[in-house]
Amino acid sequence: MADPMKIRATLKGDLADVRVLMGHPMETGQRKDGAGKPIPLHFIQEVTVKLNGKTVIEGQISQAISRNPVFSFRVKGAKSGDKVEISWLDNKGDTNRTEAAIA
């Protein structure tokens, strides 16, 4: 089971504050386990944000981002009820997605 994701999207005027929390180990490949063996790289490499079905952000990130990353951004001209969908793809091919309506 993939770790959960959570979106919070709140409207202030015509600006929506969107915050997404993504559960992920974000292994850097630099750490070693208890037996001294390196823990393999495991990180989210692509984050996609869709607004009402239309892709608005395609971001590439790296292992420099910490465990359980948080991303926040603002959407101009957003309306209450607009659907925000966020998904990620990691270097092992795992993906996860979640969506929320702007409130």
């Binding site: 608005v56 952000i57 971001g59 990130i61 420099a64 981002i65 910490s66 990353p69 948080v70 991303f71 926040s72 951004f73 603002r74 959407v75 101009k76």
Partner: peptide, 10 residues
């Protein structure tokens, strides 16, 4: 749009 990650903590 502005994207910010937690790497700024460093």
């Amino acid at each position: 749009m502005l994207v910010s990650g937690r790497s700024v903590l460093l």
